[in-house]
Computed example of a mutant assay.
Amino acid sequence: MGRSFKFLLVLWALVACAGVASAQPSSDSRVADLVKRGEVRIGLFLPQYIKDAASGELKGVWAESARAFAARLGVPLVLVEHPTPPQAIACLKSGACDLLFLPFDDRSASVGDFSPPIFQFDYTLLVPANSRVHRVADIDRTGTKIAAVRNHASTISLSGLLKQAELTLAETPEQTFELLRSGQAAAMASARPTLLTYSAKLNGSTVLADRYGANINRMVVPKGKTGWLSYVGEFVEDAKATGVVQKAIERGGPPGVTVSPPGDPK
């Protein structure tokens, strides 16, 4: 056996050992119960993910960030899919999910305990071709209807700003988009990444450059899980500082998402 071949064997063995070591479960006492169970269940809801039609894999910055967290924890990840935010919240409260991604506001404050911000994106409008709406302020007119997802954070933010226009609500982003495409609404309100995706399906449509709010995502643990919260908070800050979140955005998308600044303005 030549020296070169022996060297390659040794190198392969070292790489293999390093891979096994990196996969070892965390010994941190703050998450000992999670590690003992042998998996972490993170709930996602539409439009936080897109499912690959061929492989069934969930894609998006939420799924990629969840994978990064599970890798740090050293246990397998279970992504729990939900069609709406209320169903994902019910999953966390029932104990069927361990974590979620949500913005922090008065409506969500009672859901669980929140980490510092991890990533964020704007709320804005999608308008069809030849629309006279060029800025968010242009939409607030008597008789104007805006399609929006019921109970979504972007909808709650917009409802507090409107004085004359009316919201036409649907249960999912796809149903909301159909209201716009069918002419039942003059605009669709949502997060910029979602609107950029739907804009590609409607010729001549435009996602407005300005915004009416922002979705600042945080990781959420059940109320009272102080150890989990401390561990998750450290993960979030480390992931922002070391480029893990940026890589998750680049791998998973969607366009329009940015890394949140360090710290917690809450």
Rank of each mutant, 00 (worst) to 15 (best):
G204A: 02
G143F: 11
L58Y: 10
A66N: 03
I139V: 13
A137S: 13
A153I: 06
G252R: 01
L100W: 05
S26A: 07
S157T: 11
A165K: 04
S205P: 08
P25L: 07
H82R: 14
G213N: 01
A129K: 14
A109K: 14
A68S: 09
V75C: 06
G74H: 05
P262T: 04
V259K: 01
A148H: 05
G2W: 11
A187K: 07
S110H: 08
L77A: 04
P117D: 05
S29G: 12
A63F: 03
E81Q: 15
E171C: 04
D105R: 08
T206G: 00
A70I: 05
E39S: 07
K266M: 08
F114I: 09
K223H: 02
V133L: 06
T194I: 07
I139W: 03
V20W: 14
K240L: 03
K163N: 12
T172F: 06
R67N: 03
L162T: 09
D210F: 06
L167C: 11
D122S: 09
V236G: 00
A185C: 08
G143D: 10
L162N: 09
I156M: 12
G233A: 10
L158V: 08
T155F: 03
L169G: 09
G19Y: 12
L100M: 05
S205E: 03
V20Q: 12
P262L: 10
T155Y: 03
Q48T: 13
L9N: 07
P25D: 00
S182D: 15
A165N: 06
I50H: 06
T176A: 13
V20Y: 12
Q48E: 14
A90M: 14
P83M: 13
A71K: 14
T168I: 14
P86H: 08
G183A: 04
Q87E: 14
L179E: 08
E178V: 12
V78S: 08
E178M: 15
A170S: 15
R107E: 14
K145Y: 14
K59C: 01
T84W: 00
R41E: 03
V78L: 11
V207N: 02
Q48V: 12
S131A: 08
S29R: 15
K145T: 12
R135G: 08
K93M: 08
R107W: 10
G38E: 02
K225I: 00
G2S: 14
K163F: 11
L195R: 02
A109L: 13
R30L: 10
P86G: 10
E178D: 15
R192A: 02
T168M: 15
D122A: 10
S154W: 06
T84F: 00
S26P: 03
E174L: 11
G160H: 09
R211P: 00
A18H: 09
L196I: 07
S27A: 15
L58G: 03
L196N: 01
A165P: 03
A71Y: 05
V221Q: 01
V75P: 01
P103A: 15
H152E: 13
Q24S: 13
